[in-house]
């Protein structure tokens, strides 16, 4: 049934669409560059202990 297929299409996107967008947003939020520090020169605070 084409109508069923078309409706499945819509369900796919109602389900998959938000999933993709949420996955993307969560993935972005865990970037170390977005929160902490990186190893790139000049970006890393160094905790020194005394010799």
């Amino acid at each position: 049934m084409i109508r069923a297929q078309r409706r499945r299409h819509l369900w796919w996107w109602l389900l998959l669409g938000p999933l993709i967008l949420v996955g993307f947003a969560v993935g972005l939020s865990v970037r170390p560059s977005a929160s902490a520090t990186t190893a790139r020169p000049g970006a890393t605070p160094t905790q020194e202990a005394s010799p």
């Binding site: 520090t37 990186t38 190893a39 790139r40 890393t44 605070p45 160094t46 905790q47 020194e48 202990a49 005394s50 010799p51």
Partner: peptide, 26 residues
């Protein structure tokens, strides 16, 4: 020459790529 203990933040790299074989190598 000992320089004392330290706690450092950074990244473990392979120097071959990092210093020039791959760009970027990190």
């Amino acid at each position: 020459v000992a320089l004392g203990t330290a706690t450092l933040d950074g990244e473990i790299v392979d120097p071959k790529c990092y210093f020039g074989a791959m760009k970027p190598g990190q």
